Computed example of a mutant assay.
Amino acid sequence: MSNYTPPPAIPDFIKDVPGLLRWETTSREEAVVQASAFTKDTFTYDEVYGRFCTIEEYIDAPPEVVFDYLNDMRNLNEYTYSTRDFAPVEGKPGLFVGKDTLPDDNTKIYMRFEPNREALTIDMHCAWDQGDELWMIYLYRIVDAQRVLKKPGSVVLWTNCRHPYYDKNPYPETVPNPERPWVGDFWNLFYAGHAIEMQNLKKILEFHYGHGANQAGADS
């Protein structure tokens, strides 16, 4: 008797979709060839971070602690490089305004948080100069490290999508100084800048709440 098992029928919902790479339609050898085309020894910055900029880090602190710290807007003063002094905007509940010291002028940055404690996610919606369209969105997800790394602590994922407004300011009339650079001019530094801020976050939380830091202090 033959041990051959014919592949299952392709579901009707996808049978007419062109270009799908699935076991039922593509041999293992051909799939490896196509997968290899995505694998190179080196990648350009734009290939990796041109459309999306994601950073990730392990933090030796409980997920709920990380969530609470990130969800307190006052703490932007501590772990970010340049955003400071947020205060509520009168008449607009949930909207805050602060300053971004990255440019050499009085740049306002507006911010609104959309947290989900159950999912351990925080979406930080912000924009320079105006608060009507918060198009710069920083997506945070906190994962229990016990699930993914089998040790206490948190894995923090932070993603920024390259919104088209990064390439051109849609509100030039709100700019305080026409000579000021636009936030999108710094896109090629987003990974480095956010990685630095992530390290600030890690150092702060591990200093105060980290199991390893506390143990080191107890042993010294």
Rank of each mutant, 00 (worst) to 15 (best):
R147C: 10
K40Q: 14
W135R: 12
E30G: 04
H208T: 09
F13R: 12
E47Q: 15
D72G: 03
V148S: 15
K150H: 15
V17R: 13
M111P: 00
M124Y: 05
A195D: 10
I109P: 00
W23M: 13
T44P: 04
I109K: 08
D12H: 02
C53D: 02
W23T: 15
R74I: 05
Y166A: 09
F190I: 07
F96E: 00
V32T: 03
Y49L: 06
A119L: 10
E197A: 05
K168C: 00
E179I: 00
P18Y: 04
L189G: 08
F13V: 14
F113D: 01
D185T: 06
R28W: 02
S27F: 04
G98F: 11
T121V: 12
T54I: 08
V148H: 14
V175T: 10
L21I: 15
P170Q: 02
K150E: 14
A192Y: 07
E179L: 06
Y49S: 11
P164H: 05
A145C: 10
Y4I: 14
N116S: 15
T121E: 14
G153L: 05
E78K: 15
E179F: 09
K108L: 13
T26D: 08
P88W: 07
V155I: 14
Y45T: 07
Q130V: 13
G94S: 07
G131R: 01
R74P: 02
A87D: 01
L134Y: 10
E197I: 06
A35Q: 12
Y171P: 04
P170K: 04
F52C: 10
R51C: 04
P170T: 03
E57P: 02
M73E: 11
Y81K: 14
F96M: 13
D12Q: 05
A61R: 00
M73N: 10
A31H: 06
K15C: 09
V148N: 13
C161T: 09
D41F: 09
N116V: 08
Y166C: 08
P115H: 00
P88E: 04
E179A: 13
Y191A: 11
I55M: 02
G131N: 03
V89M: 04
Y79R: 00
W158L: 13
L102Q: 12
K92W: 02
E114Y: 04
V156L: 04
G19L: 09
N200T: 13
V65Q: 10
M111I: 12
E64V: 10
F13L: 13
S36K: 11
P93N: 05
N200K: 09
G210D: 05
D41L: 13
N188V: 07
R51Y: 09
